[in-house]
Design a protein around this nucleic acid. Structure first.
Lengths: 145, 145
DNA sequence: GTTGCTGCAAATTTTTTGCAGTCGA
DNA sequence: TCGACTGCAAAAAATTTGCAGCAAC
């Protein structure tokens, strides 16, 4: 039930320090919240999950941006125009997708993806380079049917 | 070079009236802007493309929501957390995707899509119903390389 | 001791809403 | 006429920024 070891705070602090950033109290709190929640969380959700006074909302915004640039979290867009974040394990490019319930907003992580062949063909045909994609699924979950 | 006939204002007005909505001046202006631009436009972009005083920004927001509910435009999320809209032709479900340049934000429309088999499998495996998806590609366009 | 980070407050940006007057069908 | 729609102004929601003090390394 515990998060994987390579996502422990010591390791995460190490990854921050490598980029001359600091593992501060507020950041520890934020990372702990992310470790305890598998689903992508918005800034407001992260802030709400913290103890009152543990970290300012503005600091959550600043931290999430920094953590994203440092490759420690990945940003997802689940269609409601809110930035959401998930912890990334080291070396992971975080490429996966979500299946989101339109009614209750519950989220299932999807490992599968279509073959890169489609992506390559689209890139080639249009002369684009370094092509990636974002893919999210939406539907009605069993509990909401 | 002209937009397809079935997207002319008379036709669009007809589609509105069918749902007891009105084809007002501001809405004609908005629809004209959308007809003249193939790429998905944000509310602010639409407003900027209008003549000063032609339509209030709040009305743009209200109209786009209504037009979306009426199935006349489709909303896209291009990853920057801004709602963008594209005109839909009648009977079209608007299911297509975009290839967006990370540098200059130019947009290419992509007709291709992966087989529905993947979507069905994901739906079945997770017990979800009415599953759809959003898929967008990102890369660097020829001009920006 | 540096340098980066934080809280707080204020400013921006994006989107929504209330309301009285106006317009389309 | 009548309900739907609009502009305007104000509110709400989401995000960013300035700054002086504090904390991590």
């Amino acid at each position: 039930m515990n998060p994987p070891r390579h996502l422990d705070l010591v390791d995460l602090g190490e990854r921050l320090r490598r980029k001359s950033h600091k593992l501060t109290g507020p950041r520890q709190s934020i990372l702990t919240v992310l470790r305890e929640n598998v689903r992508p969380l918005s800034n407001k959700q992260i802030h709400a999950a913290l103890q009152p006074g543990e970290c300012d909302l503005a600091t959550v915004y600043r931290s999430m941006r920094l953590l994203e640039e440092a490759g420690i979290v990945k940003r997802f867009d689940l269609g409601d125009g809110l930035a959401r974040y998930e912890l990334l394990r080291e070396g992971d490019d975080g490429h996966h997708h979500h299946l989101v319930c339109n009614r209750c907003a519950s989220v299932v992580e999807i490992a599968e993806c279509f073959t890169g062949e489609l992506e390559e063909r689209i890139a080639r045909r249009n002369g684009f380079q370094a092509v990636t994609h974002r893919l999210e699924f939406f539907g009605v979950c069993p509990a909401c049917q």
